[in-house]
Amino acid sequence: MTTIPDFTITKLTVIDAPVNLAGNRLLAVFDLILCGMRICSCVLTEKDTGVVKAAGPLGKTHRGHDIRVSFEDPAIARAITRKAAEAYGVLTGRELSDD
C-alpha cells in the first residue's frame, strides 16, 4: 500500500475549455506542492465519459526538447486528481467523478 505524502493544490484557475477533437475537455490548471517541489501548470481534464484526471505539465524547451511531469504511482495520481477535482468543485459548484 502506498503512503500518500502531504501535498497542496495551489493557484487553481478554472478554464472550462470546449471539448477537443479527442473528446477531452480542459477544466482547470493548477500548481502542486509535493515533497518540497512546486510543479506548475498541472491540468485537470475531463474525458468524454465524464471521468476526470489530473496530469503533470507538458511542454517543450526553446530548443524543442520535451518537458514532462507524470504521476507514476496510481494511488498518488488518484489522490491528486481527487483534491484538484474537489478544489474545482468548490470554485464552480460542479461535482466531478474520478471513477
Rank of each mutant, 00 (worst) to 15 (best):
M1S: 15
T2C: 14
T2I: 13
I4G: 07
I4R: 06
P5E: 11
P5F: 09
P5T: 11
D6R: 13
D6N: 15
D6S: 15
T8N: 14
T8Y: 12
I9M: 09
T10M: 05
K11E: 14
L12H: 02
T13E: 10
T13K: 10
V14A: 06
V14W: 02
I15A: 09
D16Q: 12
D16T: 08
A17W: 00
V19R: 07
V19I: 14
N20T: 03
N20K: 03
L21Q: 14
A22F: 01
A22N: 05
A22G: 05
G23D: 07
R25P: 01
R25M: 07
L26D: 03
L27A: 03
A28I: 00
V29A: 04
F30S: 12
F30Y: 12
D31S: 11
D31F: 01
D31K: 04
D31N: 13
L32Y: 02
L32P: 01
L32C: 06
L34Q: 05
C35R: 10
G36L: 08
M37L: 11
R38D: 11
R38S: 10
I39K: 03
C40D: 09
C40A: 15
C42F: 01
V43L: 01
V43I: 06
T45A: 02
E46L: 08
E46K: 10
K47T: 13
T49S: 15
G50E: 13
G50Y: 13
G50M: 14
V51H: 13
V51A: 15
V52H: 06
V52A: 06
K53S: 13
K53P: 02
K53C: 11
A54Q: 04
A55P: 08
G56V: 12
P57L: 03
G59K: 00
K60H: 06
T61M: 00
H62W: 07
R63C: 02
G64V: 02
H65N: 15
I67P: 01
R68Q: 05
R68F: 00
V69E: 01
S70P: 00
F71R: 04
E72I: 10
D73E: 14
D73Y: 04
D73F: 02
P74T: 13
A75I: 09
A75D: 12
A75P: 04
A79G: 14
A79D: 13
I80H: 02
I80C: 04
T81G: 04
T81K: 02
R82M: 12
R82W: 05
K83T: 15
A84M: 07
A85E: 07
A85I: 09
A85L: 07
E86V: 10
A87V: 15
G89Q: 03
G89F: 00
G89L: 05
V90T: 15
V90C: 11
V90G: 10
L91V: 12
L91K: 15
L91D: 14
T92P: 07
G93C: 09
R94E: 09
R94N: 12
E95C: 09
L96A: 10
L96H: 04
D98M: 11
D98N: 13
D99W: 08
